[in-house]
Design a protein around this nucleic acid. Structure first.
Lengths: 364, 364
DNA sequence: GGTAACATTGACACCGGTGACATTGGTGCC
DNA sequence: GGCACCAATGTCACCGGTGTCAATGTTACC
């Protein structure tokens, strides 16, 4: 085609019209089409797309209008192939609670939707022998832009080391800072545990049991530690026989709930370190013909859906999962920012939600 | 490099060793590397990778061994760019129940894991104005290999039409066949409704209410129709005032549960067309100081986690969501098979799980 | 007027594969 | 021996972008 000598000679609107008319067969426009219509080289179009400052303002505006008009979308595969990256973000999880995972997903997608990046989900089994190799292959083959890790895989140092080695951006969601600040979203579980303790203590409970979660989860230790700290502030100590080992599943809560009833002296309240186990305890009480919270006050952790489905509804420390997902995605895109003074928000505080599963201890 | 004249002259094992030694810098091997080591052209390697029959058996074995040895993985971006496709499968959902979505995801991944395809999740809002455009762009830009649709987006004919137009493989998960057999996974909700009815009828209930789900969901109509059919088989009719309009959320179940208590004459049982609403009814009863199932028998639908978390545990018609996801993914990869005699399994039957939320009606 | 410095833009190879078509060396058969 | 045919493999352009570096036009300044 004849190329215009000066920008002013190119009528972008006319070019767009021309395209629309000549493209009867509905072919998707490519960068070449845009370039030819605009009377520039592909490279210039490429610069516009990538927000390069090396483009004349008038040219930029014109090309942007043209792109919009004819509905051009850069091909992520071609882009990725040439620049050795991709426009995919991975979510690697091994969390047993579906509600958590979905909320995280939604939070991440809230952010990705505006960007053109897509989310690829990758549940895994940390106990599998091939876990690390699988993860590495996934990241390497897909050339992921970045990866978001949830507990407990987020706590695996070997995995983090692989990400660094591959030069892949990553954000680890965990209870405590295990890495550089900008690579973590910290969910301060300790504070949540403490608040749970304060709540029960203020209600007058002193004989309080705790059901801890799976050992391999950092959150389990944090929640318990926070809880003990909180109790200590009220002068309450936690006897060893009041500490029960669960694994974050409903079933473990159910089984341990039955055991709690046999403790002597019986506790008047229990802190289960997630909602699933708390729900299990409630069910154990029902099975035994008891009526919570009269028989036993129960505090959960997370405030996922289960918390409001059970009866009585759970008093629980809320983990803002969707927000955590959002933060993680936001931080992921700032991963390379050298400007460390501008570290974005990266810590969330659990908030105690008081419902019906706890009540004042009757000093009958 | 010197190319061997006859295959027998090429020592694949030696070539692999040579690669391993010379590749100190840990570069990922490309198809060209494999081709040069094997003494063949890229095209031949390409044929091996794509299981083309046009390759000599000895050559194939040798190259396969070499590939394994040096850990070559074809680049999905390059592959996709050249063949105008991708190795991504999309999951488009607008389902309000996270547990359903996660289970479907896991089912799909059970199948994808073996294939090298990845799953890209895409929740959407069917009521959004840009919903169809967004979906089209997603599919077109990512050049998705295929898409799996869950209710209720799966029931949108306009979306299905877009998929056909784009030539994208798709599987629709829905309550009834809306499309060619091979493009559907049918979850026979009608049968589930019928079983729920039988169950309650056999327990001696005659005054039975039903809470239907969101109107825009086909399943809602199917579950209700099946339920009415089931009742009819026992000579029971469903009066209009016993039909309550819910929307599949817990909150709607909670509100309608309270209303049920005011009905005159009061029903002795209720069929809520999903577990969330059934859980809402149970909670409404608890709030009112009533004790299910003595006050009211409640049947749910789905058997997601909620069903076993509440008290009493729900009698419910199980929807095998993970299996549905698996089937959908399997069918997706058979999408182009002309061999229509070999239509795979594509229908699942709900199964009634009897628990504690229903009991025999006392004809006092 | 000449030159350095800058702002813009373009040329071209390349990313790592695949598609379409050509080539090669047997084999079977008349 | 000549020819058709097939199996096995190769050639080369191309998919749709980006990286590198060169080229151009403008402006500032001595």
């Amino acid at each position: 085609m004849v190329r215009a000598r000066r920008k002013s000679e190119v009528d972008y609107a006319a070019a767009a019209r021309q395209w629309t008319e000549s493209n009867k067969d509905g072919r998707k426009p490519t960068m070449r089409d845009v370039a030819e219509l605009a009377g520039v080289s592909k490279k210039t179009v490429s610069r516009v797309i990538n927000d390069s400052p090396l483009v004349n303002e008038a040219t930029r505006k014109g090309i942007q209008g043209l792109i919009k008009e004819i509905g051009y979308r850069p091909d992520p595969q071609a882009r990725g192939l040439a620049s050795r990256r991709s426009y995919l973000v991975g979510l690697i999880t091994d969390n047993p609670t579906p509600q958590y995972v979905v909320n995280i997903q939604h939070g991440i997608l809230d952010v990705l939707r505006k960007t053109g990046y897509e989310l690829v989900v990758h549940p895994c089994d940390r106990k599998s022998e091939t876990f690390l190799d699988d993860a590495r292959r996934f990241i390497e083959v897909q050339k992921l832009y970045g990866v978001i890790l949830t507990p407990s895989v987020s706590e695996d140092e070997r995995l983090a080391e692989i990400m660094r080695e591959l030069g892949c951006a990553y954000i680890r969601i965990a209870s405590i800072a295990l890495d550089m600040e900008r690579r973590m979203i910290v969910t301060n579980d300790r504070v949540g545990g403490r608040e749970a303790a304060h709540h029960l203590a203020k209600l007058g409970h002193t004989r309080i049991a705790v059901i801890v979660g799976r050992r391999s989860f950092r959150s389990s230790h944090e929640r318990r530690a926070g809880f003990e700290e909180g109790l200590a502030e009220h002068g309450i100590t936690l006897p060893q026989e009041y500490v029960l080992q669960g694994d974050y599943t409903f079933e473990s809560g159910l089984a341990l709930g039955a055991e709690i009833l046999d403790l002597d002296p019986p506790p008047t309240a229990v802190f289960a370190s997630n909602d699933e186990m708390a729900a299990g305890v409630l069910q154990a009480l029902h099975v035994a013909g008891q009526t919570p919270p009269d028989a036993l006050s129960v505090v959960g952790f997370d405030d996922f859906e289960t918390a409001t489905r059970v009866w009585p509804r759970l008093t629980t420390a809320r983990t803002p999962a969707r927000r955590i997902g959002r933060l993680a995605a936001e931080r992921l895109f700032e991963f390379d920012d050298e400007d460390s003074t501008a570290v974005g928000e990266n810590e969330t505080m659990p908030q105690l939600i008081e419902r019906d599963s706890t009540r004042r201890h009757r000093t009958s």
